[in-house]
Amino acid sequence: MLTLVLGLLFAGLFFASFQSDRRRLRNGVLLLVAAWFLLQAALDFLIDLNPWFEWLNLLVLVVPVVSIFVFAGFLIANGVTMVRREGPGITSFLPIAVGLAVFLAPVIAFLFVLSGQPVLTGMAALAFFLCAYLGSAFVVFLGYAVVYSRMRFSPNPAAVIVLGSGLINGKVPPLLAARLNKALEIYDGGSRAKPVLVPSGGQGPDEPRPESTAMKEYLVAKGAAASDVLEENQATTTRENLAYSVALLAEKGIEGPVLVCTNNYHVLRAALLSRRQKINAEVVGAPTARYFVPSAFLREFVAVMRDNRLTNIILCLPMFGIALLITVALMNSPVV
């Protein structure tokens, strides 16, 4: 009964927070906690009906552990695919590095504990706490990113901001084309009053022209009226994409609902950034090549953790304290 009450309580908190602003990462935390308690409540109900269902408790413990190693293997395989298709690079090797770390961390921690050294045992405990925290944070991020990317938004925005993502030889690559196609879908599918399209992106050091220029060419070539396309050609980061585009719209006197177009893996972080900058906008996602998604989500997760580093440090401080207490206790123990 307690698990059911807690599940319903956190579900209520999730819906309240979601209705207030769906661009909150805490929504994902509340959703995960609610789902966990409701799952436990369902298991308790089934066990009360028939003790045979007790084996499900073991399944709940085993499946996450097995899933971790399956996920690690998948990341390594995906990294190999990335290297083959995209060539060597940090982005390509990131899934391999994370996959190997997931495999090796438990082994190294186990060896540390077996050593009998208090300091190494304390380090193993700290590694366990940090890995559990990072794993939970990633599940929250990934789960809510999927939930958020599937939400429906206003079909009649006043403007659609398209975030730049880099050019290849001065041309729009497939990744960026997907964003522009999504913007055109919204442009063509709304009311008679067409939204203003704002391709946003400056000129990088390895680009022959601003991203926004190539993006505007693409939009006009695909049927958008040139008068409906407003270039923002100074931004070099997602924060600047959002801030400069909104400032440009305000300068032109364009008011009303704003949608931001990006790729599906980037949707949640763009939404979090828009909220942090107090920009009244929602974010929609365009499809991405499947082989590219795992690496992209990992990079987005790292970026979100970095953007919230103060919160993460505060939450991790007790883990360091507990690990230190374990180390001191073992050093003073006559058994060790």
Rank of each mutant, 00 (worst) to 15 (best):
A177T: 10
N156T: 13
L184G: 04
L176V: 14
A193E: 12
V172Q: 02
V140S: 03
Y148P: 00
A183I: 08
K194L: 12
A177K: 09
G189Q: 03
A145Y: 08
S149Q: 02
S154W: 06
L176I: 07
N169W: 13
L197M: 14
S149D: 06
I168R: 14
V196C: 09
L175W: 00
F141T: 04
G189H: 06
A159Y: 07
I161S: 05
L184R: 05
Y148E: 05
V172R: 02
L180M: 12
L197E: 08
L197C: 12
L180Q: 04
A177G: 09
Y148L: 09
A158D: 02
L175C: 02
R179F: 12
V160A: 01
R150A: 15
R192V: 13
G164S: 08
A158S: 06
V162M: 09
V196S: 03
G166Y: 03
L167I: 01
R150L: 14
I161W: 15
K194W: 08
Y144C: 11
G166T: 07
L184I: 01
A145F: 01
I168C: 02
R192I: 03
G170L: 11
L180Y: 10
N169M: 14
Y144P: 00
V160Q: 05
I186F: 01
L167Y: 01
R179P: 01
K182C: 01
L180K: 10
P155S: 02
V139S: 14
P155Q: 07
R192L: 10
G190T: 14
A177I: 02
F141K: 04
L167D: 01
E185G: 09
P195C: 13
L184V: 01
L167F: 04
I186L: 06
V139C: 15
Y144M: 08
A145V: 14
V140Q: 06
N156V: 12
K194H: 12
R150T: 14
N181Y: 03
V162T: 13
L184F: 13
F153T: 00
L176A: 05
N169D: 15
A158M: 04
N181P: 09
L197S: 04
R192H: 02
Y187R: 04
V172F: 00
K194Q: 11
F141L: 12
L176W: 00
A145H: 08
V146C: 15
R179H: 11
L176Q: 05
F141S: 05
F153E: 10
N181V: 03
I168T: 03
G190S: 11
A158I: 00
V139D: 10
V146H: 02
S149V: 11
P195A: 14
Y148I: 12
V172G: 00
I161T: 06
N169C: 11
F153A: 07
L184M: 07
N181S: 08
R150G: 11
N169H: 15
A159E: 11
V140Y: 09
P157Q: 03
G143R: 01
M151L: 15
N181K: 13
I168F: 05
R150P: 09
A193K: 13
L175I: 00
L175Y: 00
I168P: 00
G143E: 03
G166K: 12
R179K: 12
A145T: 14
Y187N: 05
E185L: 06
G189A: 06
